[in-house]
């Protein structure tokens, strides 16, 4: 079984606003798959659909060959333990310190003894380079550090799939490089299937094995990074080259501008 996650004919809408109209997408096992698209195209929504936090109107998502939206609560919890989702904001538990944050999934999902949990947590914190912050509160961390702690917390359960929602936004170049190396390291050393959602074209293309570009509820371009960069598709070109003018509008769909301003000719 080579596909970790398969989406077939996904249709999803929110408040009568269609977000995915007919989405087909495959995420290969042990590979780095990047999902890119303009802001508001539904990338975060897509990850939440994979995590079964949202339910599609039509179509299905297969995780390890099983429809994730048809699992019982227990099976779903087990499936979720096998996937890690790193939210756009780190979403650390504010009432716990860094150590307890990373220990949380272990305490909740395993019967490990305290000293084992301690060792595991310290190892994971060491992986992200923040063992020294174990006793700090999340409010004492910078946002880049918070995201790395969240990463340590996500890998604590040894997931087989890890999804990053915009890991690079708001990071300085050094943190960015560190994060990229970390993502690659986790992918190569632990064999984690990796999904990166991002609109940092250069960084993402440099570490991705396969890229999807979504726009207007559909996949408009897919392929290896070189293929994407060489793509003829207008939307893909506009996105990868960051052109202001093109078929991807900057504006959220709205009424006619002149009419809205009351300038429409009677």
């Amino acid at each position: 079984m080579n596909q970790h996650v398969v989406m077939e004919n996904l249709y999803f809408e929110r408040d009568n606003h269609i977000i995915f109209s007919n989405l087909n997408l495959k995420i290969a096992r042990n590979k780095v798959t990047a999902i890119m698209g303009p802001s508001g195209s539904g990338k975060t929504t897509l990850l939440k659909l994979i995590g079964a936090q949202l339910y599609p109107k039509r179509g299905k998502i297969l995780f390890n060959g099983k429809n994730i939206h048809h699992l019982s609560r227990k099976e779903l919890n087990n499936a979720r333990c096998q996937m890690g989702l790193l939210f756009q904001e780190a979403a650390l538990f504010t009432h716990l310190n860094v150590f307890e944050n990373v220990a949380f999934p272990l305490r909740e999902n395993s019967e490990l003894l305290d000293f084992m949990i301690r060792d595991l947590v310290l190892m994971h914190l060491e992986t992200v380079g923040l063992r020294g912050t174990a006793l700090l509160k999340p409010s004492q961390l910078s946002s880049g550090m918070a995201r790395r702690v969240a990463l340590a917390r996500t890998i604590a359960l040894d997931p087989s799939l890890i999804m990053y929602d915009e890991p690079f936004t708001g990071q300085d170049p050094i943190t960015m490089a560190v994060l990229m190396r970390l993502i690659q390291h986790l992918n190569r050393v632990l064999g984690l299937t990796t999904v990166i959602v991002s609109h940092d074209v250069q960084e993402t293309l440099s570490i991705a094995d396969y890229v999807y570009i979504i726009f207007d509820g559909k996949v408009v371009g897919e392929g290896r990074p070189q293929k994407i960069l060489a793509s003829e598709n207008l939307a893909v070109q506009q996105f990868t080259h960051g052109l202001a003018d093109g078929i991807i509008p900057f504006h959220y769909p709205a009424e006619d501008y002149r009419k809205d301003l009351g300038l429409a000719d009677a």
Partner: peptide, 15 residues
């Protein structure tokens, strides 16, 4: 906790 997606990330840990 809901706003900062702490509950959502808890859910994603199978809790």
């Amino acid at each position: 906790m809901q706003t900062t997606e702490q509950l959502a990330s808890m859910e994603m840990m199978g809790v």
